[in-house]
Design a binder for these strands. Structure first.
Ligand SMILES: [Zn+2]
Ligand SMILES: [Zn+2]
Ligand SMILES: [Zn+2]
Ligand SMILES: [Zn+2]
Lengths: 139, 139
DNA sequence: TATAAAATTGTTATAACATCACGTTTTTGG
DNA sequence: CCAAAAACGTGATGTTATAACAATTTTATA
């Protein structure tokens, strides 16, 4: 009864696994380099086709800021996606704060818009990297 | 006493004027085509250098979603930028809702992040285009 | 004003990201 | 089994952005 039966072919599974193995966004050509290890005849189209399918089905997000891709951490209930990337360690964290999503939705509606897609991308420094910075500064 | 004395050279002024002339985001190479009308020896670097300067100084925003650039409509007080683009007419509207910006800031802080930049990009249909659609559907 | 440092521009090449087009193979449903 | 749809192979091409280094212009100040 699921609205979207997801068919993971070998290529799609490989690309998904590559993204699963990292918490930093990966570019399509980085993914390609890794994919070649298990599929020597892979070319850009191979990766882009898999990424298209995976993003359309909500398993992967594109980080527009970086032209890079990350695994979605909650592929079930999808509203408005929020991604925060640490510019020091490159780790990406996805959240799906309902309050924030609702407010975005409300503001857009109030302005007369019908949303089809929304992204919030935050570039920041994470707690750990902030601590490291302070440690280094104190030397 | 201004913190950022903005120096608009001829190239920067030209690019700014090109962006001023439209309420739709323009790609760098579209800008280049227009720039060539007033500076025949312009090349991609010419445009990208101007865009870099203008974005760094808050006069222009990049719409990451589209790899395109728009004029900032409030270059003075800059917090978190919110852009909504109509996918029917391509018009981009920038808002700077304080409530939304504060909430984003708060959520990031609560999660231990120090924000350096944030973008909210909404793809939607504007009021006018929604009305047109309904009109056409009724035919 | 002389002049050295800093900022900007000129110019060529190339890197990085993404899609088109078309033919073949595989999967799927009847 | 067969036809239609989906996925994949393959090569070329399109689009966006930066690297690298030389030349020129601007700026500050000695
Ligand atoms: Zn997600
Ligand atoms: Zn970090
Ligand atoms: Zn702005
Ligand atoms: Zn519209």
């Amino acid at each position: 009864m699921s609205a979207k039966p997801i068919k993971l072919t070998t290529d799609r599974k490989s690309v998904l696994d590559i993204l699963k193995s990292s918490d930093s966004p990966k570019g399509a050509y980085d993914i390609l380099d890794e994919l070649k290890k298990v599929k020597s005849n892979a070319v850009p189209m191979t990766v882009y086709r898999a990424l298209d399918y995976l993003t359309e089905h909500g398993l992967v997000h594109k980080v527009e800021n970086l032209n890079a891709y990350i695994l979605c951490n909650h592929p079930e209930h999808h509203h408005i996606c929020q991604i925060i990337i640490c510019e020091a360690c490159n780790k990406a964290t996805e959240s799906c704060d309902k309050e924030l999503a609702s407010l975005v939705q409300k503001k857009a509606e109030d302005a007369g818009f019908k949303i089809s897609k929304a992204i919030l991308e935050i570039t920041a420094t994470c707690e750990e990297c902030l601590a490291n910075d302070k440690g280094n500064a104190a030397l």
